[in-house]
Simulated scan of single mutants.
Amino acid sequence: MTVIRIAAALLIGADGRTLLVRKRGTRAFMQPGGKIEAGELPALALARELREELGLVVEPGKAQFLGEFLAIAANEPGFEVNCQLFRLDVDQAVEPAAEIEEIVWVDAGNVDYLHLAPLTRDSILPLYRSLIG
């Protein structure tokens, strides 16, 4: 299976909720972030993607590395994502930009009403719940 290397953010707002995004033309909600370019450090890739997708300016050094996760890609059939996940606590407003069509802030409660990417559903949201528990 072909692997896509991504950097993603567990963005946690001042109220403790976390941000999920949905890209234009897709169904699955997931953490903001994106592909890591060749030779790019994951935290720098994350900062670039957050600026492009949400207008969010973050200091890469403030991103807390939470781990590496693998999952079936939500939007690329036959691909797997290798995710470098970082936590960022933010109190800035975010606006969908670039390929982001929709954003939603969710709490640790039931999110079954959303179509979630496998990585978000199986790995990241359970981790989020344990962190804010």
Rank of each mutant, 00 (worst) to 15 (best):
T26M: 08
A9S: 13
A93L: 09
F86W: 08
D112Q: 03
I132N: 07
G34V: 12
R5L: 11
L119D: 01
P118S: 12
L56C: 04
S130D: 05
P42I: 08
V104M: 07
C83H: 00
P32C: 04
L56S: 00
A93R: 06
L11F: 12
V104I: 14
E68V: 13
G55Y: 01
C83S: 15
T120N: 07
G16S: 07
E40Q: 15
F86C: 08
V104K: 11
V111M: 06
E102L: 09
G67E: 09
G78Q: 06
A71R: 02
F29Q: 04
I6N: 04
E37D: 14
L85G: 03
L114T: 11
R48C: 06
Q92G: 04
P42R: 06
Q92F: 01
P42F: 07
G13F: 01
H115E: 14
G109N: 08
R22H: 10
A71Q: 03
L127R: 00
L70V: 04
G78I: 11
A73E: 15
E102I: 05
D15I: 09
P42H: 03
L70W: 11
V90E: 03
E102K: 14
L88Y: 03
N75R: 14
G16I: 09
R48M: 09
M1H: 02
G78K: 09
E68S: 13
Q31R: 06
R51N: 03
T2C: 05
R17P: 02
D107M: 05
A98N: 14
L116Q: 04
G25E: 00
L114Q: 05
N110C: 13
E101R: 01
P32M: 00
E68T: 15
R22D: 08
W105V: 09
Q92D: 15
D122R: 15
E95K: 12
T120G: 10
E52A: 04
